[in-house]
Design a protein around this nucleic acid. Structure first.
Length: 432
RNA sequence: UCCUCGAUAGCUCAACGGUAGAGCAUCCGGCUGUUAACCGGAGGGUUGCAGGUUCGAAUCCUGCUCGAGGAGCCA
């Protein structure tokens, strides 16, 4: 043998050498005594050339059956070639079929969404989808690295929970032996307990919302990173958001520029996403909306068109802070100078992608928190432990949740969040 | 849950009241630089389901099923 196994992405360094490629056939083009096989291996794709006069009759015969997605081990010599998109080609002298493929459903042409999602297990093999998965991996890794460097402790919060985190009606119910249980829609309340134990913590996991919601921004199961920090106010929280997000985007720009270009996002454009992000108050946002003819009464939350109109004014993601108390969750801390608004903020992504972060400062006063629970008709016994956090050394604390899929959809200019997760869970779609 | 749109060959679509078609894919043949290759040939259909109108329905009407986009809600 003598050939070393090489990933296609590394072929540039292997020009002139004998290499072994292990991958899947993308296409076979036959033209008399010469055949072109394009192969991919997860790191990239390369064209391999077979000449009838240069290979054994057995290899020539076998190469005729290299149908789309047949898995192969191929050996040959790597050669620079100006005609190749990647600059290199391989002159094959041996090819071994590992697993034959026939009648592959997904062709290199346009397909409908329904068909592609039904074949998600195969769709993931396509160039664009693989690129998205690589970026997702880098992005998540960068977030973890940044949090780790800043002294955050990863603390995984439970997925099976005894009650609603935020008291909404949109939870998936399941059974926990003889009790009812619910799939978590956020790890935040547990994070608050962990922050008092460890100072700075985060959870990174799936969240479940049983909303009968079907838009390009929604998944039933999605992933969130939720940092929570003791002794931190709203301003400290927002700084953490912008630092973490711009670092992670910077890592993606640095490590996946080709994938970004393939997906139609200019890496240079993304590299401009650096702190500080603009900050406007809810009141100022209402002013922008009024100018655009999208007036809403004070106290109401924004809908998707409103978020889009606001974010269109900015090149960077924009924080909207100090929402009306009535529009936000029970645990948000009122602004001491203006109790009708809370010390919360949402981060709206540019280009109409909408909210990608929600967070803020939490109520640290026992009596106020108890009052809010009652105002929201939440069962106090479910929140006894949460109230305890305000009885034993309560501190000002803040945190936020960043939606991985929405952020990726924006970064990668995608039409829909469903392409940013390997197997999307959507209304009416549980398979594969 | 509501509003809008859609369903015809494996895929993407055409036929819009008068015999259901094309491109791609598949199979067979040809071609020594192709790159969504090209050229020739073949197979492939209960037009989502059920009813109705009509001499005649893929086409018009009703109901249902499945899906998509959006709204509300949210990351």
């Amino acid at each position: 043998m003598g050939a070393t196994s090489v990933r296609i992405a590394e072929l540039g360094a292997a020009v002139g050498q004998s290499v072994e490629i292990r991958g899947w056939v993308l296409s076979l083009r036959k033209s008399g005594g010469i055949r072109f096989v394009v192969v991919r291996d997860g790191s990239g794709q390369v064209q391999m050339v077979l000449r009838e006069k240069d290979v054994s009759p057995e290899v020539w015969e076998a190469s005729a059956g290299l149908s789309q997605e047949t898995s192969i081990i191929a050996r040959g010599r790597c050669r620079a070639d100006a005609r190749a998109p990647s600059g290199v080609e391989i002159d094959l002298d041996d090819v071994e079929v590992v697993g034959q493929s026939g009648d592959y459903p997904i062709q290199p042409k346009e397909h409908g969404v329904d068909f592609l999602l039904d074949h998600r297990h195969l769709w993931l093999r396509s160039q664009r989808q693989a690129a998205i998965m690589r970026v997702r991996s880098r992005f998540e890794q960068a977030i973890r690295n940044w949090l780790d460097d800043q002294g955050f402790i990863a603390a995984d919060t439970p997925i099976l929970t005894p009650s609603a985190c935020e008291g909404t009606t949109t939870l998936f119910e399941t059974t926990y032996f003889e009790q009812k249980a619910y799939l978590s829609q956020s790890g935040q309340l547990y994070n608050e307990a962990l922050a008092q134990a460890l100072g700075k913590v985060y959870c990174f996991g799936p969240a479940f919302r049983a909303e009968r919601s079907k838009t390009r921004r929604h998944l039933i199961e999605f992933w969130m990173v939720e940092p929570e920090m003791a002794f931190t106010d709203l301003d400290g929280c927002l700084e953490t958001v912008e630092q973490m997000l711009s670092y992670a985007i910077g890592q993606v720009v640095e490590r996946c520029p080709d994938d970004l270009r393939l997906l139609g996002r200019d890496p240079e454009e993304l590299a401009q996403v650096r702190p500080p992000f603009p900050r406007i108050s809810y009141d100022e946002a209402l002013g922008i909306l009024r100018e655009q003819g999208l007036e809403i009464p004070w106290g109401e939350d924004f809908g998707a068109p409103h978020e889009a109109a606001i974010s269109e004014r900015f090149k960077l993601p924009v924080f909207v802070h100090r929402y009306p108390t009535s529009a936000k969750a029970f645990y948000m801390k009122p602004d001491p100078e203006r109790p009708e608004v809370v010390l919360s903020a949402d981060l709206l992504a540019p280009e109409g992608y909408g909210e990608i972060v929600g967070g803020g400062q939490r109520i640290d006063d026992y009596d106020l928190l108890l009052r809010r629970l009652r105002e929201h008709d939440l069962p106090q016994e479910d929140y006894d432990w949460y109230l305890d956090l305000r009885r034993y050394g309560s501190v000002p604390h803040s945190g936020f949740g960043l939606g991985i899929e929405r952020t990726l959809a924006w970064m990668l200019k995608l039409e829909h969040v469903r392409e940013t997760i390997p197997f999307p869970r959507m209304l009416y779609r549980l398979r594969p």
